[in-house]
Simulated scan of single mutants.
Amino acid sequence: MVELDPLIRAFYAERYVEDDRLVRSGHGRLEFLRTQELVRRYLPGPGATVLDVGGATGVHARWLAADGYVVTLVDPVAEHVATASEIGTFAAMVGDARKLEQADDSVDVTLLFGPLYHLVDGADRAQALAEARRVTRPGGLVVAAGISRYAGLLEYGNKGMLSEDTLPEFEVALTTGRNYDDPTGFTNAYFHHADELRAEFDQAGFDATEVLGVEGPAAATLEHAAPADVPTLLPSAILLARLVENDPNVMSTSFHFLAFGRA
């Protein structure tokens, strides 16, 4: 049985629609397009096997399968897996990032787009990375997403919601990385610094680890843009994100990071 934090399970099953997250806002579209761009930069050729751990309803598995990859999606939320299974171009199963059913050295690429920020305990994140390394063939690619330590602060600041009264809400997250379940907001999570995410990859034994900012400094602008303005804003935002993706001075203005390592 998958051991998932009940608050996280309830968040995705009852409070949050994951299936359209990357299309319903300008920021979601920016995150999706940049994630595709970065992942495609590192992927082996079509025909390779991809394990999409924490793949939710299949938003990434869908385009990977369309690109010619043999994809298996794993997610701890049964409702997500049921939705993903209906797509029909890839396999989908319920599972836990910390205890994968796949055999050793059985896939070419393992994606962790979610597990590392919902496993709030460092030992659990280390176990998920160890499992990703175990199932990925030597020399294969492992990619994991992390939420920036400053994401919530940037979102509130750009919404006009940051004040002396609301600032204490971010003190714990800024100091410890921990985000606690908010019935009107996000659920339990861990927010990373870029160098911290890189260190977790290095400690798990991956080679050639690289951490890149996904959305860049325009993330908050796209988050609050009017839908009609998004098509005009996106090309500039993507170019800006690309130019500063590995600049340590500004990469934390991205809401998300992607870490790339070799098994």
Rank of each mutant, 00 (worst) to 15 (best):
L222A: 07
R149C: 04
A126Y: 02
A123D: 15
A144Q: 07
A208D: 15
A225G: 07
P183C: 05
Y150P: 00
G139Q: 07
A241E: 00
G146C: 04
H193S: 10
H192L: 00
G114N: 09
A145Y: 02
T176N: 06
D229S: 12
L239E: 15
L119Q: 06
G157Y: 08
R178T: 01
L112H: 11
G114M: 09
F191S: 12
T187C: 13
A126C: 06
L129T: 02
D229L: 11
T110I: 11
Y156L: 12
A128V: 03
D105K: 14
L234T: 14
A126F: 01
S106I: 10
A123I: 05
G146K: 08
P183K: 08
F206W: 03
R137Y: 02
G216Q: 10
P235R: 09
V172D: 15
D207Y: 02
A132P: 10
V143C: 03
V135Y: 09
L167T: 01
S236V: 15
L167F: 14
D165N: 08
T221D: 03
S106P: 04
H224Y: 15
E215I: 10
L174R: 10
R125S: 07
S148Y: 02
L116F: 02
A189R: 12
L111E: 09
A226R: 13
A220K: 00
P138Y: 13
P168Y: 04
G185E: 10
L111C: 04
H118M: 08
E171F: 14
S148E: 03
A194T: 02
H224M: 14
V143I: 15
T175E: 12
D104I: 01
D104M: 01
G152F: 05
A132T: 10
L167I: 04
A144S: 07
Y117K: 01
A173G: 08
G205L: 12
S148I: 02
P168R: 05
G114E: 06
D195E: 13
L141S: 05
K159Y: 05
L212S: 13
V230K: 11
S148W: 02
E171S: 12
T184W: 00
L141V: 03
N158R: 11
S106T: 12
R125F: 10
G205M: 10
P183Y: 13
F201Y: 14
A103H: 12
T166L: 04
T232D: 15
R149M: 01
